[in-house]
């Protein structure tokens, strides 16, 4: 690294150290562990700015924040998983001595045997690290993949297929068909009237139709078929645009949240 980089880094560290001192002075009397608290607030402000600096370019501060974040979050989820799943839910059903060791109430019962199997499967998974018996780790994987494939098969067949078919069953001629005379005499031209409903139903039907044709793989997309597929992708793009526009506001409010943290909790400029 260049000398100037070191100088910049040192300057940043000094700045944040000063901020720590000022923050501690500000918090003195307000909270009990004011030095620790001031450090933590300053440090999280530092991390916030370090991550934001990524927008300019990759830099040592970002790298520091990123690597720290990875280590801490990996450990966090491991601890949470261990305490909530293993200790709170598994061990009380597994064995009395272990429950006593972890100071959780034992709730064994006659069916606790069924909880030994996932433990065995879990241990088989760990055997992956061994070169010789690593292939045993495929058993738990096969169990997970098989179970969830079966689950997803019926679940999606129902929600994304059968239910979607029946929801396309909308009358394209307005309400119930009772002859031309009835149809024309009830045709309503207002914005929320029957005509706009008929139009909407047609757009939905044709949209679904063309969209499905776009996803048709085993036929060449030429001629009329190709044109329908083209319309299909246009309709898809409309939707994606709408979804894009829909998300923008939510994302901006996230940024506002972070800026509020910097100016309110750290610098105390906004009350």
């Amino acid at each position: 690294m260049k000398r100037s980089s070191y100088i910049i880094m040192a300057a940043v560290v000094v700045l944040f150290a000063l901020s720590w001192i000022f923050k501690a002075m500000a918090l003195d009397g307000e909270t009990e562990h004011y030095i620790t608290r001031a450090f933590l607030v300053t440090f999280s402000a530092f991390l916030t700015l370090a991550v934001l600096s990524f927008l300019y370019r990759d830099n040592p501060f970002y790298k520091f924040a990123e690597h720290l974040f990875v280590g801490i979050s990996a450990a966090f989820w491991m601890c949470v998983g261990f305490w909530t799943t293993i200790v709170q839910n598994l061990i009380p059903r597994l064995s009395q001595p272990l429950s006593e060791f972890f100071e959780v109430p034992y709730i064994g019962g006659s069916f606790s045997i069924r909880f030994y199997l996932p433990v065995i499967l879990g241990i088989l998974l760990l055997l992956r690290l061994s070169r010789k018996v690593g292939w045993l780790s495929r058993w738990p994987l096969a169990f997970i993949v098989g179970t969830t494939a079966g689950l997803n098969f019926v679940r999606y067949l129902r929600s994304d297929f059968i239910q979607q078919i029946s929801s396309t069953f909308v009358p394209l001629l307005g309400t119930r068909w009772e002859g031309f005379g009835h149809f024309f005499s009830h045709l309503d031209l207002s914005a929320t009237g029957q005509l706009s409903m008929i139009l909407a139903n047609w757009v939905i039907f044709l949209g679904v139709f063309c969209g499905l044709i776009y996803f048709y793989f085993s036929k060449e997309h030429t001629g009329v078929f190709g044109k329908a597929s083209r319309v299909g992708i246009w309709v898809l793009m409309f939707t994606f645009g709408a979804s894009f526009g829909y998300t923008v506001m939510g994302r901006i409010s996230l940024l506002v949240g972070r800026i509020t943290f910097l100016f309110k909790d750290w610098l105390g400029l906004i009350s």
Binding site: N152, Y156, D160, I204, V208, G232, V235, T239, A242
Partner: peptide, 24 residues
């Protein structure tokens, strides 16, 4: 949001559903 969006979503959902079902 209510009309073409609904149509396209339905087409995508049916496609995804078929993909998931076939893969499963």
């Amino acid at each position: 949001l209510n009309v073409p969006n609904l149509a396209a979503k339905r087409a995508i959902v049916i496609g995804i559903g078929l993909g998931i079902v076939a893969t499963a």
